[in-house]
């Protein structure tokens, strides 16, 4: 492995992470302005034109605030938890392909952090670790609101992970591979041929709906934000957190939203591909990255749209939905896909 190979690898892995970290403050602006739009009020508009510098002001505020650690908290875990949450969120992006294969002096360079054979399994492994950040934050704060938030979150994430994984199993079955580049390749063919090679969302609409709903629960966003329900739990698991530690939970939430959106795009909406578009030149590859970004941004916007539109579920309703509705539907979808694969329709 030469130095240029190492450099290329670092670029492949770090580029999406850096882009996410840069876009993150912007997302917060979009969410707050979007909330204003939906609720028929201006939203933050004082700092800079259209309030565009508001995220910057918030970052400064987070840095300047006093960093409190409650006296009865378990110090080590209290400090570890937000880092764990952000780390788990960031590492998920490593296996998602964000563009077509680049050709550099005859060497194909796939635009994905690591094209591993267990891609989707890796994703589920890392997302299943993200629960630790929340649970530990809730427990180490030594505060009953935090603890209830942490317990709710662990129950919620374990329950919805099941439905989410079963829904994704349909896509894996159709692609015949855990490799996410294979999943994208499967979706970049013809929509009219048999076996079908278009976006997965058409034959697996049911699976997509299950995955979409579970994604909201996995990211702890409204209407499933029971772990931090402010009306009953103050702020749930991050009640005691302030300054940068609070900001890290905030960041983890937005990164999870971006990753969930990117995953939905990759699994169900063809990733970077577009019907009739087969990139070969450098311009085509850049276009493919743009296509991926636009699709992901669309789903991120849907996340925000839903947040300001739907009311919160009650906890027992949430559990009932997960176990009695989504899981059976995901299994139904799996049978349907298995049938399609059996009769060579996929």
């Amino acid at each position: 492995m030469s130095a240029s190979d190492v450099g290329m690898l670092a670029l492949r892995v770090l580029a999406p992470v850096l882009v996410i970290l840069i876009v993150l403050p912007m997302l917060q602006w979009v969410e707050r302005r979007g909330a204003g739009l939906i609720q028929d009020r201006p939203g933050p508009n004082r700092v800079g034109p259209f309030g565009l510098l508001q995220p910057l002001a918030d970052v400064v505020k987070f840095f300047m605030k006093e960093d409190l650690i409650p006296s009865h908290a378990d110090r080590f875990l209290y400090v570890l938890a937000p880092g764990l949450a952000t780390f788990a969120a960031l590492t998920t992006f490593a296996v998602i392909p964000y563009g077509a294969t680049l050709n550099i002096r005859g060497n194909p360079v796939p635009l994905v952090g690591a094209d591993v054979s267990i891609g989707i399994l890796y994703l589920f492994a890392v997302t299943s670790l993200s629960v630790y950040g929340i649970v530990l934050a809730g427990w180490s704060s030594n505060n009953k609101f935090s603890l209830i938030g942490g317990i709710r979150s662990s129950a919620q994430i374990i329950s919805y992970e099941l439905a989410m994984t079963t829904a994704a199993a349909g896509v894996i079955l159709a692609a015949g591979s855990f490799r996410l580049t294979d999943v994208v390749a499967m979706q970049s063919g013809s929509w009219l041929s048999l076996p079908y090679r278009g976006w997965t969302v058409v034959p697996q609409l049911l699976g997509f709906v299950v995955f979409f709903v579970s994604a909201f629960a996995e990211t702890n966003r409204l209407p499933f934000d029971l772990p931090e329900a402010e009306a009953e739990l103050v702020a749930g698991y991050h009640t005691e957190y302030s300054a940068m530690k609070f900001a890290m939970f905030y960041m983890a939430e937005y990164i999870n939203v971006v990753v969930a959106s990117a995953l939905m795009v990759t699994l169900y909406f063809g990733g970077w591909s577009f019907p009739g578009f087969h990139p070969t030149s450098l311009g085509g590859v850049v276009l493919s990255v743009l296509i991926f970004a636009v699709k992901t941004a669309f789903f991120v916007w849907i996340f925000m749209w839903v947040r300001w539109t739907l009311p919160r579920f009650r906890y027992d309703q949430l559990m009932r939905l997960g176990w009695k509705a989504l899981l059976p539907l995901a299994l139904l979808n799996l049978f349907w896909v298995a049938g399609l694969v059996l009769w060579n329709a996929l």
Partner: peptide, 22 residues
């Protein structure tokens, strides 16, 4: 390896934590 992380770290040990907190 993936099953180990998903099942052990992601489910079984979370269950342990859940019970300990409960």
């Amino acid at each position: 390896a993936a099953v180990q992380v998903i099942v052990y770290a992601g489910a079984i040990l979370v269950l342990f934590l859940f019970v300990l907190m409960l």
